[in-house]
Design a protein around this nucleic acid. Structure first.
Lengths: 128, 128
DNA sequence: TCAACTGTATTATAGGAGTAATACACTATG
DNA sequence: CATAGTGTATTACTCCTATAATACAGTTGA
């Protein structure tokens, strides 16, 4: 069963989103793989001290995204294979990229200049 | 006085943010410069068919960012010159880019792939 | 079968964000 | 110094989101 030992919720971000992202990151990192079983809604909610419906919301959205499947009365299981996980990996980036491109455009930075800036800070990060 | 002729508010985004960004884009584009006078809260609110306090919120935030200054009973004026505008924008970009490159690297995205993604979402934003 | 587990649908509550109504305070100008 | 303009503080209303309470429905296994 998938462990939530390393799960450290943070204030200011909806818990259901943090639960979702915890699972997603686990999949991307390879620590969670196809066939792994999720804890029950009630068990996890008790563990985290929240309402089962909050966990339900997170799991429901993961199901809508095709990451897990659920059988009423039984539980939920990871069904995403490497290919779909790779898609999720790119989706996680989408939000960040959108924010950045919006930012650039709002400031009238050209695409070429944006790429130059990215390259510049990429080098800087390499040297840290 | 700064014109709001080209201002076309969009549903789904807070009006006060759209007002802020309209001014910011004008400054970056050079169509709004230091010394330009903003319309009064009441005048602009009547023009847009909204409450004066909504305009006030936008102007107050522009003031907090150092873009304009306000004298009670008189009105608001642009105080940021081209140099300080450019400096502020680049400062804001730096934080975003750093976060961005960190994000990419954590997910093992290559620099080349990162640039590809940036180009892709740049196109998407153009088509909106 | 039945008890104890599982998921789910519906409804309610709390809080925040965006916006507005109102009254107040200051400035400009005749 | 009066009046009509200006900005501002306080308060409240509305909508939506996040979360919870409750009751219902399916599965499992001794």
């Amino acid at each position: 069963m998938i462990s939530f030992e390393g799960f450290r919720p943070v204030d200011g971000v909806p818990i259901y989103l943090q639960i979702m992202n915890y699972i997603k990151r686990g999949c991307v990192a390879g620590t969670i793989v196809k066939g792994d079983v999720l804890p029950s809604r009630r068990y996890l909610s008790a563990l985290l001290g929240i309402n089962p419906m909050t966990v339900q919301k997170a799991f429901k959205m993961l199901e809508d995204e095709g990451l897990i499947t659920t059988l009423q009365g039984s539980g939920s299981v990871i069904i995403a294979d490497d290919e779909s996980i790779n898609r999720i990996k790119l989706e996680l980036l989408e939000g960040e990229i959108r924010k950045m491109t919006e930012y650039f455009k709002q400031m009238n930075i050209s695409q070429q200049k944006a790429i130059e800036l990215l390259e510049e800070y990429w080098e800087d990060a390499d040297n840290e």
